[in-house]
Amino acid sequence: MSLAKHWRLQQQRYRLIGVQCEDCGAKLLPRRLVCPQCKSHNLQPYSFKGQGMVYSHTVVYDAPSGYDGYVPYPAALVRLDEGPLVATQLTDVDIDEPYIGMPVEMVTRRLREHGESGMIVYGYKFRPKLKD
């Protein structure tokens, strides 16, 4: 179990911090060193609002180790209002509820824990929008 690999991604995972291209304005999540649209290297941190819509969704039944205690769980690609897609689990939702176009919002939840004595990894998930 690596502690540092989770620690160094905290800001992205807790607060959806990506980058904005200072040259072409593209908003990118996750962060990159080179803008895929204009190849600029001038990218500055940008905090995403955490609102979006389901682009596609699934329900995981056969899960990788560390996630098997949560099955079945819904996951999705969410199209953020600012443009990027984000891969995420959906939470606070029954497995048959998600649909393409469902309005969702970011919350911070447990992504996994490394056993009884290991680190708890927190990060973003998305849930059906609580309030318009």
Partner: peptide, 13 residues
């Protein structure tokens, strides 16, 4: 609480 909730996540919201 949901399976992915604990005092931390509740406090955060």
């Amino acid at each position: 609480p949901g399976l992915d909730e604990d005092t931390t996540t509740i406090a955060i919201e």
